[in-house]
């Protein structure tokens, strides 16, 4: 077990956001955190590298409690990719090199440069490495940020909505890459996601949050139409298309919702 979260609680002022959250992630696994907007997915992610100090419980990485560690020590174990990225006049190579910060004492070594070079190749960013971030597309910047988290040489990768602003090709590319990296380097990844179909395709384990608690923690077989309906309050049906599970929201048909809208607003045809 690389990562285990035990009785995690988080309060924002007097408001309880997360309570009694327990789960674990093994080497080579991708865990997807899912749930409605505002349920605390991002908060949970930020508790896992102490950007938010948990109000109770603990987060163990390789059996060591990160809440007792100094920030640099956490950064050597947990890499994080934020949902929104800031871009400036910084080359991609320099931006990735920043991921070595937790390891750098006074100056960068040749070892650091070699690691960054290797990460650049892994993410196929060679052509872009000397381009400035403010001249790159959203997908390219996202890749740079993932590369930055990788050169931290972390045991756990935290990704907050990594595909939310990307096109289809980049979504598939980035999630496949994350899964390949996690498997081949024997690390763990925790990813917040909105897209159920993508989660079903790329993650090994699923955590559904509802009302600040875990509603379900399961492998792929446990993601049923019932669970999804309970969490999102939308009836769904799970189909298999080309051998992959696809979640189809049922709800009202187009004609039914048009009728309902007209009725509610007293509109005539």
């Amino acid at each position: 077990m690389i990562l285990s979260v035990d009785g995690l609680e988080f309060h924002y002022k007097s408001l309880s956001v997360l309570k009694g959250v327990n789960f674990g992630v093994e080497e080579g696994e991708v865990l997807a955190i899912m749930g409605p907007n505002g349920v605390g997915k991002t908060t949970l992610l930020k508790c896992m590298n102490a950007i938010h100090r948990p109000s109770g419980g603990c987060v163990m990485v390789d059996a060591a409690d990160i809440c007792r560690m100094k920030p640099e020590a956490i950064a050597r174990r947990v890499g994080y990719v934020a949902q929104k990225q800031e871009t400036g006049r910084m080359t991609a190579f320099d931006a990735i090199l920043m991921g070595r910060k937790p390891h750098i004492r006074w100056r960068i070594s040749e070892h650091d440069l070699r690691i960054v070079d290797s990460a650049v190749k892994r993410l196929r960013l060679e052509e872009l490495s000397l381009r400035h971030l403010d001249e790159m597309s959203g997908g390219e910047v996202q890749k740079v940020c993932i590369a930055r988290a990788l050169v931290q040489e972390p045991r756990v990768l935290l990704l907050d909505e990594p595909t939310s602003s990307l096109d289809l090709r980049n979504q598939v590319e980035i999630l496949s890459l994350v899964r390949a990296v996690v498997r081949s380097h024997k690390v763990a990844a925790v990813v917040t996601m909105h897209d159920l179909n993508q989660a079903l395709r790329f993650a090994d384990k699923f955590l559904f949050l509802k009302g600040g608690c875990i509603h379900a923690a399961t492998h792929r077989s446990g993601v049923t139409a019932e669970v999804i309906e309970e969490v999102y309050n939308v009836p769904v049906h799970i189909e298999h298309v080309a051998g992959r599970p696809v979640v189809v929201p049922l709800g009202a048909t187009e004609t039914e919702s048009l009728e309902k809208y007209r009725h509610e607003h007293h509109l005539t045809q």
Binding site: I51, P71, A73, G88, M98, G99, P102, A149
Partner: peptide
């Protein structure tokens, strides 16, 4: 200098890189 570079990348990213 590295702390300022990290802060430029956003507060959350900087925190995740071990910057106070």
């Amino acid at each position: 200098r590295w702390n300022y570079n990290a802060v430029d990348a956003g507060d959350e990213t900087a925190s995740s890189l071990g910057v106070r």
